[in-house]
Write a protein that binds this DNA or RNA. Structure first.
Lengths: 243, 243
DNA sequence: CGATGGATTGAACACTCTCAATACTGGTGG
DNA sequence: CCACCAGTATTGAGAGTGTTCAATCCATCG
C-alpha cells in the first residue's frame, strides 16, 4: 500500500504552484502573466457592481447561469439543497475568486452571502466572446476548471475517508492556505459553525466539540468564535493529511 | 427552501443525453457537432492500444500525465491513496469514457483495472494540438470538464449528507443510468464490494449489510454478487434523491 | 477437491448524531 | 449605559448508525 510521495499534490497551494509555472512559461513578453481575473478587467464597461447583505441569495439553483461573478469583498457559500431540506455547502468563495465558468445553462447550486459582500459581474456572453478570442485565456479557463475539479476530488477524499477531527483540520489548513495566513496570525473565519458543519458533512455540535478538542490538545486557540489561532500547524497539517 | 426542479441536471444521463443528441446528428455536417470521442479518432495514427489484467495499474499518482486514455472495454477505478493507506475511489470509468483531460502535469490519482480491460491512448501533445485547432473541440473539452465537476459536486452531497442506504441507492441509480440499463434488466456490477465501499466512504461490511437490507425490502434481487436486479426503481430513486 | 480470495453475517464497540439545556454575543431599545 | 432579546455557540447525556473484529459461507480455479 505505497504511494505517499504525492500527498502534497492535492493541497491547494500545490495547484497554485503549478499555475505559477504555467504562467512563467506562457508569457515571454511579461514576467507577470495575466490571470483570468486580469483578463476579465477588460470587460469593465460591461460589468455591474452589487452589494449583498449577510444571508442574502446572490443566485439560486435553477436560475439561468448567464453571468460570471467576481467576489471583491466578503465570503460566499455555494450550496445545494435537497428536497428534504438537507443542505450541503459545496465550497466557500473568497474575495478575489470567480464564479460562473461552468459550462451549464442553469445554476447548479445556490450562492448566498456569508457576510456582507461586494461583487462585480459580467454577462456570460461577453466572457464567452473574450475567451473565444484568446488562446491564452482559454488555457486559463481550462486551468480554472481543472483546479476546481481537483479540489472537489480532494474534498471527496476528506468526506469519504476522514474523521471529524481530520476533516476540521483539513478545512482549517485549506482555509489558512487560501487566505495566505502567516504563521502565528489569527485566522478569521467568516462563516458560522453551521456552515462549517454543512460543508464537512457533520453536525454543528460535532464541529463545536471538535474545535474544543483541538483547543484542549493545544493545537488551537479560540479568541472568539470567528477567530482561531493555529498554534500547532504541524499537528493540524498531520491531521489533515492523516496518518 | 425548495428547489427540486433541477435535480436531474446533475444526473449523468442528463449530460449523456445531450451528447447523445449531438452525436445522433453528427453524420451530417455543421448542424452536427462531433463528440470528443469522435474527434479523438482523427488521431488514430498516433494511438496505442493496450490490455490490462484485473488489478493492474494503468498509471499511478505522481507519474507524468502525458496521455489521454479511452476505455474500450472493461471498467477502471480512479483512486487516491493516503499516506496511512486509506483509499478513496474517486470514480469508476466505464467503456467509452475518457481519462486525461485535466490540466495537470502529473497524474492526480491512480488508475487501476477493475477487470480485464482494453484501452486506447493518445499522446497529450497531439490531443492538445487537436484541441487548439478547433473551437468546436474546445467547447467539448469545457463541457467534459464541467460535467465531471458537476458529478464530483453531486458526489460531495452524497458523501456529506446521505446515509449508507441512500448512498448505495445513489450509486446504483447512477450506475444504472450510465450503463443505460433497461427496466427489469440485470445490472452488472464489475467492481467488488470493497471498491464500492471505498467509493462511498463506508466499510465493506456496511455495503454488504446495506445490500441485504435492500434485498429484504424487496428493492433488489441479488442473483450473484456481481449482478443486481433493481426490482423497485421507484424506491431506489427516492432513496437516492432522499426525502 | 482442497485452497484462496471475496462476500456475508454476528456481536460488541465507538464515533457521531439527536435532543436538550445553558452560555454567549451583538444589536436594540429603554 | 444597561437590560433585554434573538441568534449563535457550547456542553451534556443518551441513542443510533456504522465500524471493528471475528467467524462462516461461497465461488472460482488450479
Amino acid at each position: 500500500m505505497p504511494i505517499s510521495l504525492s500527498a502534497a499534490r492535492n493541497e491547494p497551494n500545490a495547484t497554485k504552484g503549478r499555475f505559477a509555472a504555467i504562467h512563467a512559461a506562457s508569457d515571454r513578453d511579461a514576467i507577470a502573466p495575466l490571470t483570468l481575473n486580469d483578463h476579465l478587467r477588460t470587460l469593465q464597461s460591461h460589468s455591474t457592481r452589487h452589494h449583498y447583505r449577510r444571508g442574502e441569495t446572490i443566485f439560486a439553483e435553477g436560475e439561468p447561469a448567464d453571468r460570471v461573478y467576481k467576489i471583491l469583498a466578503g465570503t460566499v457559500r455555494l450550496c445545494r439543497y435537497s428536497a428534504g431540506g438537507r443542505r450541503h455547502i459545496t465550497d466557500f468563495v473568497l474575495a478575489g475568486d470567480l464564479i460562473g465558468f461552468l459550462e451549464c445553462a442553469d445554476q447548479p447550486m445556490t450562492a448566498e452571502a456569508v457576510e456582507d459582500i461586494t461583487l462585480i459581474s459580467y454577462p456570460r456572453s461577453c466572457v464567452d466572446r473574450l475567451v473565444a478570442s484568446n488562446p491564452e485565456i482559454r488555457t486559463r479557463v481550462l486551468c480554472h476548471l481543472s483546479s476546481h475539479l481537483l479540489e472537489a476530488q480532494h474534498q471527496l477524499f476528506v468526506l469519504g475517508c476522514q474523521s471529524a477531527k481530520e476533516r476540521l483540520a483539513s478545512f482549517l489548513m485549506r482555509f489558512a492556505d487560501r487566505t495566505d495566513l502567516a504563521p502565528g496570525e489569527t485566522l478569521d473565519l467568516p462563516m458560522g459553525r453551521q456552515d462549517i458543519a454543512d460543508h464537512l458533512g457533520m453536525t454543528i455540535e460535532t464541529v463545536c466539540r471538535t474545535i474544543s478538542m483541538l483547543k484542549n490538545d493545544g493545537a488551537l486557540a479560540v479568541p472568539s468564535s470567528h477567530e482561531l489561532v493555529l498554534k500547532d500547524m504541524r499537528a493540524l497539517r498531520a491531521l489533515a493529511v492523516e496518518n
